[in-house]
Each structure stands twice: as structure tokens, then as C-alpha cells.
């Protein structure tokens, strides 16, 4: 019988810790049919804006819709590539510069599927999920992030 997948929560409060990423990699040790992993980590950059240097990004989301969209993207990517595993985590709330705000992790028997699926996932997450980043400059100044 085909495994029925349901919508998973992708949101993490605050930054995604390096320990969580390490643990996630370790969790795959028992899946011995995997031959390659591909990982993308989004990190908050200290951009220079007119008002000053970015110190953090405050993320908000239309959570219900984002989870529904993420589920649809997940299903489409699973249908397109022969993947063993796929994990998506995105921060909500404040993430300081240098910290991780997006963690996308794909695994497959052979490397190509994992690499291509990971890249496509990142592009679709940035373009299609109703998530907004507000760049915090100091106590008085902020700017809404624009994705390029």
C-alpha cells in the first residue's frame, strides 16, 4: 500500500541550531538504502541598508496556508524525483545575522536526485510560501525583505 503522507509542521521558533541539523543527519544512519544527501542552509546576512546594518530578520507567516502549500510542494517533488527522504524547516520569529533560518534536506539512493530536488525545493519555498522577513536594523528602523 502506498504510504499516505500528511502535512508536517515546517516551522521552528527562532534560529535553527547546528545541533538540530547534526541530529537530523545522524537520524538517517539507519536508512542504509540512502547513498547521498543534499542540504541547503539559509543564513541571515548582515546587509547594509540606507538606515544601517541589518542585525536580525523577524519572520512571520500565514501558517495554515504555508503548511498547505509546503505539503503540495513536497508531494510534487516526491513525485518528480526518486527520493528516500525530504525535510524542510523554516524559522519564525527573530533570527540574528549569522544564524540559520532555512534548512532543506533531501536524500536519495544516488546523488543527482537529492541535489536537483534540494535546489528545486529551495526555489519553490522562497517563491511560493507565504512567509515574510522583516529586516531589523536597530530599535527604530526596519525594512521588509525582498526576495530576488
Amino acid at each position: 500500500m502506498k504510504k499516505q503522507r500528511t502535512a508536517k509542521n515546517i516551522f521552528v521558533n527562532g534560529a535553527i541550531s547546528p545541533e538540530k541539523i547534526a541530529q537530523s543527519i545522524a537520524n538517517h544512519a539507519s536508512k542504509t538504502d540512502i547513498g547521498g544527501h543534499s542540504i541547503f542552509l539559509g543564513q541571515v546576512r548582515a546587509d547594509m541598508k540606507e538606515e544601517g546594518m541589518v542585525k536580525a530578520i523577524e519572520y512571520t507567516a500565514y501558517e495554515d496556508m504555508a503548511l498547505q502549500q509546503a505539503f503540495e510542494i513536497r508531494e510534487a517533488i516526491f513525485a518528480k524525483y526518486p527520493l528516500t527522504c525530504m525535510h524542510i524547516y523554516h524559522s519564525l520569529g527573530e533570527v540574528k545575522v549569522g544564524e540559520i533560518c532555512l534548512f532543506v534536506f533531501t536524500s536519495s539512493k544516488h546523488r543527482k536526485a537529492a541535489m536537483e530536488a534540494c535546489e528545486e525545493l529551495v526555489e519553490r519555498i522562497k517563491k511560493e510560501l507565504p512567509i515574510w522577513g522583516k529586516e531589523i536594523i536597530d530599535n527604530e528602523n526596519s525594512a521588509w525583505k525582498v526576495n530576488t
Partner: peptide, 10 residues
Amino acid sequence: VALLPPFSGG
């Protein structure tokens, strides 16, 4: 109903 400015996640 929701009003959504351009997305800027990631």
C-alpha cells in the same frame, strides 16, 4: 480572506 504582500521567506 487574507492580504499577502510579496513573499520573502528563506
